[in-house]
Design a protein around this nucleic acid. Structure first.
Length: 257
DNA sequence: AAGCAAACCAACCGCCCTGAT
DNA sequence: AATCAGGGCGGTTGGTTTGCT
């Protein structure tokens, strides 16, 4: 059972957009807003696939787009975010106002990859190239890929790595060569009270807001998380700490130092 | 000036996720 | 629970531009 095509390909234009097509698309979206991409081409009088319209708008025509060269600050931010998120271009783009995922992806592949290679850093792992061949294990970078999470959990069930001396965040351990200013640390009292599970206090799991000491936050989901924990579904990792597993935290709201 | 290669980037493709029914 | 439509995403392609010989 195949999926119906998103449009009638036989009657759609492909390739570069003309000025007239751009104008039609802009005018239609200004009048009717974004959304319903499938029906948009017909309504706007465009012989284009709906997906093509969406892409053109998002990547090129949107008025809030920032055109022009990336700044050095943006470069470094992209590198940091990529080290954390991997090829999650849309997530990275969410941290760079006016930039699109496609733009960042292209920029990464054409500029930053080479920049890192010139620095002797493997762009895939963010480790020195000399180490890249040696440490090709799956935990060398942070990923939200499910398989990798499972490996991560096996290596560090609570998002921490056990050493002879102390417990330290697994994130830091895996990227010793990175100064990840983006990293968010839970308040110290967790580590003193609950070494076994730094995201619980007194057997209760805390959400990000509570763990940051934000009392009575509207966004507090401790009760939800607690229920999940009690059902044997407690997998509090550093990834969960960021709120991405439960989805309660919009990572776009994370503040960079 | 011509030819070629590398770099760049807009656009496409196919898959996945989510919400509605 | 199954199916479908719509939207979103990452990977890839291919046309254009730039730089070098």
């Amino acid at each position: 059972m195949g999926r119906s095509p998103c449009c009638e390909k036989a009657h759609t234009n492909k390739g570069a957009w003309t000025k007239e097509e751009d104008d039609r698309l802009i005018a239609y979206i200004r009048a009717h807003g974004e959304g319903c991409w499938r029906s948009l081409p017909k309504a706007a009088g465009l012989l284009r696939c709906g997906k093509s319209c969406r892409l053109r708008w998002i990547n090129y025509l949107r008025p809030d787009l920032k055109r022009g060269n990336f700044t050095e600050e943006e470069d470094e931010l992209i590198i940091k975010l990529h080290s954390l998120l991997g090829n999650k271009w849309s997530l990275i783009a969410g941290r760079l106002p006016g930039r699109t995922d496609n733009e960042i992806k292209n920029y990464w592949n054409t500029h930053i990859r080479r920049k890192l290679l010139n620095r002797g850093i493997d762009p895939a792992t963010h480790r020195p190239l000399s180490e890249a061949g040696v440490h090709q294990d799956v935990s060398s970078t942070i990923s939200f890929n499910g398989v990798k999470q499972e490996n991560d959990k096996m290596n560090s069930p609570n998002g921490f790595v056990e050493t002879d001396e102390k417990k330290i965040p697994a994130v830091e351990e895996r990227c010793p060569d990175l100064n990840l200013d983006l990293r968010i640390s839970p308040p110290p009292y967790h580590q003193t009270q609950q070494h076994a599970d730094p995201f619980k206090t007194g057997g209760k799991t805390l959400c990000l807001f509570c763990s940051l000491g934000v009392k009575n936050s509207k966004q507090c989901i401790c009760s939800i998380d607690t229920a999940a924990s009690s059902s044997g579904n407690n997998t509090n990792t550093a990834y969960d700490f960021l709120g991405l597993k439960t989805g309660f935290l919009d990572y776009r709201s994370l503040e960079m130092k």
